[in-house]
Design a protein around this nucleic acid. Sequence first.
DNA 1: TCGGCTCTTGACGTTGACGTAAAGGGAAGA
DNA 2: TCTTCCCTTTACGTCAACGTCAAGAGCCGA
Lengths: 133, 133
Amino acid sequence: MNTTRTYTIRQLTKEFSVTARTLRFYEDEGLIAPERRGQTRIYSGRDRARIILILRGRRVGFSLAEIREILDLYGVHDGGVTQLVHSRKKFAERIDTLERQKVDIDESLKELRKGIADIDGKLAPQQQAHAAE
Amino acid sequence: MNTTRTYTIRQLTKEFSVTARTLRFYEDEGLIAPERRGQTRIYSGRDRARIILILRGRRVGFSLAEIREILDLYGVHDGGVTQLVHSRKKFAERIDTLERQKVDIDESLKELRKGIADIDGKLAPQQQAHAAE
DNA sequence: TCGGCTCTTGACGTTGACGTAAAGGGAAGA
DNA sequence: TCTTCCCTTTACGTCAACGTCAAGAGCCGA
């Protein structure tokens, strides 16, 4: 396959709508480690995949420290049983927080939809044909 | 009903596991406006309800500025049609971002569960009875 | 009356996640 | 060769969301 495909920093900034500063910052923080051609960074498909995970983790509210921890977990699939059990626990913790978060989101959605319903009620006291956008 | 029930700052900090500094900060930012008995803050049931909304908004990743905007929307149920339509649009925007966020969360959950499955695979190559915690 | 507790208002400090400006290198096209 | 990009590092700046003193007021039981 094209596991040999590489990317420049500029390509990735455009693809993901982030600045070069951001990608360099993630590198400083140890979240990615692109190779170099001379000075210039060369991002592999693996780097790109990690960036996708990082950005999604960010969108769901994880801090970069938490994201780094999760990324590290994916790498530790060797190591002893103790390590594996520990990693499993960490994964389970993240799953729990995300599921709690889904509940919060559903609650918020309920509130917001109630807000819309209230408005629609005041917006169409007599008439009827004005539901969808 | 007991709409007359009031709360001290200390009670609320304990109930919601936040510091007094946080509640005062939210007041400075215009998110709540408790009354005063002399110098001391007296929180009403309505204040408490707003705090619940604020904390939940925070958990789902809204900034305080966004939360304040949403809270303001709930107050503007008067005003002209233009206002109402504008509020409705804002509500709809928030709903959209939350639904996109649910997708992100589901994606993350899939990844994390895959991580657990991988670990379980390496953790029990021969034996079978070792699933739940 | 005196600690001790909780409340208050400043006001400066901190942390995370970058933004932004300065100064320079290398390649490519006019 | 000169200008123009895009790349780099270094380093100080910024913004949100509080934390952390400092200094003082009010009240309550001993």
